[in-house]
Design a protein around this nucleic acid. Sequence first.
DNA 1: CGCGCGAACGAACGATCGTTCGTATGTTTG
DNA 2: CAAACATACGAACGATCGTTCGTTCGCGCG
Lengths: 208, 208
Amino acid sequence: MKSDLLAAPHATAPPSSRRALIASVATELFHRKGYAATSMRELASVSGIEAPSLYNHFSSKETLLHEICFGMADAFVSTARRLAALDLPVEDRLARAIEEHLRLLFSDREAVGVFVNEWRHLSEPSLQTFKALRSDYEQFFAGLFQEGMLKGVFRQGDPLWLGRQLLLLMNGSIHSTARPDSEALANLGRRFYGLWMHGVASSTTQPD
Amino acid sequence: MKSDLLAAPHATAPPSSRRALIASVATELFHRKGYAATSMRELASVSGIEAPSLYNHFSSKETLLHEICFGMADAFVSTARRLAALDLPVEDRLARAIEEHLRLLFSDREAVGVFVNEWRHLSEPSLQTFKALRSDYEQFFAGLFQEGMLKGVFRQGDPLWLGRQLLLLMNGSIHSTARPDSEALANLGRRFYGLWMHGVASSTTQPD
DNA sequence: CGCGCGAACGAACGATCGTTCGTATGTTTG
DNA sequence: CAAACATACGAACGATCGTTCGTTCGCGCG
């Protein structure tokens, strides 16, 4: 196995090796048309290559999917591990988690799209492993809410539900067309944080 | 063979005609495996029929998808039209919209799953029409937020963004395993409304 | 120079795809 | 009873699927 170029957060930069080019094209096609609706021949054609040559770089179609999905999953989980170790008030850690999640999300939107929508086409045992990683990441967010509730910073509720909903919300942002620069990204993060913390009601109205 | 006798006392909603049974099975398969990954032969097999016989009821595979997607789209849009005509304070109309959206969502989760995830496999011109219906529905929610902002009930923000995010959030609920009864559904609606209105922060903390 | 090897290709494999055709079998209608 | 119709099926169509095979080409290295 060569270097894991998928982990590097460059979306548009031209990959050096042929292998990385194929992975990048596959990511785009899997995202736009779906895994099942993308054929190896089309992938080859867009890559400027013949279909059999693909198998000099990837042993199967599913290997491509595997690499994309687990590349993103590892990135998310390792980010979560890093954030969990931070010594900050829980609401600040939440803000950081939102910010980092969005940063990762926009570092390669197409890969995230595949990660979010196409993972179900993985076969066992990869599927099990993937779900476990996904659950880890959800648990990290759930843990933030749980801790915040214990400390009285957050209203009571189901922490796992809240974690999943927040992730759902952020992941939906990849559908917005504009590619945000780092400033716009920070703004988006504050927007999510504000919405999640205080909702849409004007501050004059009171909670029930 | 008269296998109709077996089809009578079936699982959730016993479809009267063969046509409805096929549509129901197609919905389940398209939802669980995806449109592209579902073959007509498998659909036939699960329906207890041979593949060519399907074409006595539906003229093509895409016709099935079309019927599922537009069936849900029409239901959502007509509900929105009904709600828009209601003479209620805007925040109450939002609560009702959330409630009705959830009700529709859980009335047929599999169809909603197809509606949300598989519409992109429609071909033109249906695809255009579908997107237009979808946009109508988003605009309805955006309109609620816009009106709420003008009246000072809601904090300032991008109404279309808020509308899309709220829909995204609710649509994600179909992944939860439990089938809620009408009381649990009402609770879920209040949960969404509360979260959306006031966020997760405990009421002692203040917005920035 | 010659040897090995990764990378590319044309051909083609067996499987499966969506769909059509001809036909058989009731059931309804005149 | 006969004509008409809806529904089912087996066979099979052409297309395309993921993948394998045998081969060739070009390059680095002894």
